[in-house]
Structures are given as structure tokens and as C-alpha cells.
């Protein structure tokens, strides 16, 4: 099932997942019925942009614009999205 994500793909959060910023933890979290995942800063920045409308290319572009000083950002963003997809945190919109 772990196919590769493509730049024109649009992803949304998986059904029943919730994403929010946690003041007390100082990080973004993903919540789902059997647990939770704490996201580090860059992972949070990527998942934050997964909204069921933006394409993968849009997300990459946005991240690049937001963090112009980070080298090789594209690879990191794609890897994060692939991981999120493989783990079924995010789902492809048809």
C-alpha cells in the first residue's frame, strides 16, 4: 500500500485524526483513538499545511517561502509527507 506521493497529490488528515498545537507541550500533536503523536517543529510545520486543498507542490513551495534559509527543504518536506502517508496519518483526496 505504500505508494509514492506525487507533487500533484492533495492530502487531508486521515479520518478521525485531529491536529492541534499544545501550549503545555510546546509542540503540535496528532490525536487519534488509540494514542497520540507528538510532532517536532518541522514535522508540525508540514502537517499544519495538509488541509485537503493544497497539493504537495504547494506545501513544498509554502515551506520554502516560510523558511528561506533552510537548505534542501524540499527533500525534508517530501520525506515527512511520505512518512505521514505511510503511517496513514494523512489520506489522499480523490
Amino acid at each position: 500500500m505504500s505508494d509514492k506521493i506525487r507533487s500533484e497529490d492533495v492530502f487531508g488528515l486521515a479520518r478521525h485524526y485531529r491536529f492541534q498545537y499544545e501550549e503545555a507541550q510546546g509542540c503540535y500533536v496528532l490525536l487519534f483513538p488509540e494514542g497520540m503523536i507528538k510532532l517536532n517543529g518541522s514535522a508540525g510545520e508540514v502537517i499544519k499545511r495538509v488541509d485537503g486543498k493544497k497539493t504537495v507542490a504547494d506545501i513544498v513551495a509554502e515551506c520554502k517561502a516560510a523558511f528561506p534559509d533552510v537548505p534542501d527543504l524540499e527533500g525534508d518536506v517530501l520525506a515527512m509527507l511520505q512518512l505521514a502517508y505511510d503511517k496513514a496519518w494523512i489520506a489522499r483526496k480523490e
Binding site: 488509540e34 494514542g35 503523536i37 507528538k38 517536532n40 514535522a43 520525506a79 512518512l83
Partner: peptide
């Protein structure tokens, strides 16, 4: 990048 931890692994003061 991300850690799956069911809220388990914590550093510093534990939080409920």
C-alpha cells in the same frame, strides 16, 4: 522527525 509515543516518553517534569 516524529515520535510515536502514546504520550509516554517525556523529558523533564512529567505531565498528566
Amino acid at each position: 522527525m516524529a515520535q510515536q509515543n502514546n504520550g509516554t516518553e517525556l523529558h523533564g517534569t512529567p505531565k498528566p
